[in-house]
Design a protein around this nucleic acid. Sequence first.
DNA 1: GTCTATATTTAGATAGAC
DNA 2: GTCTATCTAAATATAGAC
Lengths: 189, 189
Amino acid sequence: MPWGPEQKQQSRERILNSAAKLFTQHGFDHVGINEVMADAGMTRGAFYAHFSSKAELYAESIATAAKAAHLKAIEALGSDASLQRVVKGYLSEEHRSGAQINCPLALLITDIGQRDDKVREAYTRVFKGFVNLIAQGGDADADEAHRQALQKAVLMVGGMAISRAINDEELAATLLDVCRNGVLDGQEA
Amino acid sequence: MPWGPEQKQQSRERILNSAAKLFTQHGFDHVGINEVMADAGMTRGAFYAHFSSKAELYAESIATAAKAAHLKAIEALGSDASLQRVVKGYLSEEHRSGAQINCPLALLITDIGQRDDKVREAYTRVFKGFVNLIAQGGDADADEAHRQALQKAVLMVGGMAISRAINDEELAATLLDVCRNGVLDGQEA
DNA sequence: GTCTATATTTAGATAGAC
DNA sequence: GTCTATCTAAATATAGAC
């Protein structure tokens, strides 16, 4: 079979996409290899031809989810690359409901702290990339710009995570609004 | 045995304290009834004389952890009840290392979103209490004060959660510093 | 009320056929 | 490479002795 390797690559990507979606929706502990493979159109046994363990899949799927979320953000921007539009998209009800691949930072925050270092490193890398993305178009002073970007990242990621945790829909909407304003006010100052 | 009921109450409180500590340290999914009961000085079988399920214990232990964290905050304040000291205590390395009962908001954020409504309601109640606590001594305008308190709560809870997730110690320290300043700057303005 | 022992379920991981 | 079948380990929950 001449195109065996490409076939395998396709399967691997389907697994990663399913894992990125399910992990960012429900968290690592509530998604089994079973579900991931079923979502990818295969069964359990085939999994270990692509990954050696669930933890390895987790670490790689964080990067996959980040890439998908990043692409989505860029696509939503179009030609107008204002921070305002990124923030509106990120801190939105659509993102909160989370039917697609979601931002791995928000959902996985506390999950990550308990994992092994490979997983935490993947998460840390994504977080740093997120902060750098936010920092663009910021202050002239590099250090101060970095600090402001850090604060904005916390407002966005923390706000999204908390809005999902609470069961008061009105408060959740207010929370997202406050965080949007907080991030954007800081930029205009 | 005339003092049976008080005995039972004591056991129940020991279980709740152990659960509050272990759940806020390691998360719901990584703590078994086994460990909770061992920490409380008992064995598995005794658990069901006090709680009907692990989920019920979880919901109640959130309130227990919140009460303990609240007491600790008040104690740390002493006579000087400035927001500055609360923030310094909350966004500290000691809190981050989390050897005691920790703030249930920060560690359990993403965990909560996946649970049943009883658990989410317990969490939501704690979050509202936290926001109200922060709002005291704030703006004259009640609505604007509430919004500012929400933003501060996100910076504190989100900052703590993220600082625990990343594996870059220097960045974590910077992050906590930025959040401290962000919360306190808002107050002085 | 607490103990030990056990039933049940679930999920990660492996073996072997095709 | 993918399948079905199976092993193994862990954890919730229950049963029955004391």
